[in-house]
């Protein structure tokens, strides 16, 4: 029956970081391996988030969740200011939905590479193709080169900062502004790791109508298991996104409650970020191989001899 399947879904899908785990198991003797392959937060979420999630479940699980994610969106506005937000099942859910609003068969999407592989897979799933926009040797992005390479018909561009997996320079708000000024499509700035760096791109949302900033509760907020992503979107785009968001319900009520409480517990997240930053510096200082410094909760190590 495979001839009935779209060819895009007969190719290899997303590569999970499981291979090394299998190796460790096969080797035996390591019953409790150190899990440093998925950029997870090793610390539990805020106890307030855990309590909120537990409290909502018994009395309300027979009802559908709030399809507008209102409590969470209100918490986002309180935390970040008066911006427009959308929420979805992980930032991947946002990426999927944004692509669905813009990309059809034959459309092109620019991706600053090397980077997170899911952008390309999600574009393919919608019938689009990706144009690779290479980063510089230090893995940073030159805005002029980016706009030049992305020009010529791409409708959407993905730029991850701090970049997964390279780390390296976190782009300055000025770099992102220069891209927004000169790029004719929509720039999706993936800021999954930005809490570990602190660069603030939010004010750019007031200046540019072609910028979407994706964020996640999976990393700094320790809620990877509950799948909560959100994005700052331009005002004109919000109703279009909402129309394209399918299935009709995104966050479940447990995720909504936990994410709302986690976002409010700023003390907890600050503490975690500070511990991660200390260890990041120790990795840079103590790893015998060269480490690409960066602003995320991971580092990239060059294992070729120095």
């Amino acid at each position: 029956m495979k001839h009935l399947i779209r060819k895009d879904f007969l190719k290899e899908g997303y590569v999970f970081a499981t291979r090394a785990a299998e190796i460790a198991r096969a080797a035996g003797g390591h019953t409790r391996p150190a899990r440093l392959a998925s950029n997870e937060n090793p610390y539990p979420p805020s106890p307030k988030a855990v309590k909120a999630a537990a409290d909502v479940l018994p009395p309300h699980a027979n009802r559908y969740p709030d399809e507008t994610n209102k409590e969470f969106i209100d918490a986002l506005k309180k935390r970040h200011g008066d911006y427009r937000f959308v929420a979805s099942v992980g930032m991947d859910g946002i990426i999927d939905t944004v692509i669905r609003t813009l990309i059809a068969d034959g459309d092109q999407v620019a991706v600053a590479t090397p980077t997170y592989s899911y952008y390309g897979l999600a574009v393919q799933a919608q019938g689009g193709t990706t144009v690779s926009v290479p980063r510089k040797a230090d893995f940073s992005v030159d805005p002029e080169a980016f706009c030049r390479d992305a020009a010529g018909g791409t409708k959407l561009a993905f730029l991850c900062t701090p970049n997964n997996p390279t780390g390296g320079t976190t782009e300055t708000p000025e770099t992102i502004a220069a891209i927004c000024e000169n790029y004719e499509g929509i720039l999706f700035l993936d800021c999954a790791y930005i809490e570990f760096d602190g660069t603030d791109y939010r004010p750019l949302m007031k200046r540019y109508r072609n910028l979407i900033i994706g964020r996640t509760m999976s990393k700094a907020y320790s809620l990877a298991g509950l799948r909560v992503g959100y994005a700052f979107v331009p005002e004109w785009y919000e109703p279009i996104y909402q129309r394209a968001a399918t299935p009709p319900f995104t966050l479940n009520m447990v995720s909504q409650a936990a994410a709302t409480a986690a976002l409010r517990d700023t003390v907890h997240v600050k503490k975690i970020v500070s511990v991660v930053q200390e260890w990041r510096q120790r990795f840079i200082d103590e790893c015998p191989y060269p480490v690409v410094p960066g602003g995320a909760n991971f580092v990239m190590v060059d294992v070729a001899p120095p």
Partner: peptide, 24 residues
């Protein structure tokens, strides 16, 4: 017993001698 990620699955443009290590 340490699980890290090879960056070989992040093409294009990344040579095959990089690993990514999360802070745990």
């Amino acid at each position: 017993g340490v699980i890290v990620r090879s960056c070989a699955s992040f093409p294009p443009g990344l040579p095959d001698h990089y690993i990514r290590v999360s802070i745990g």
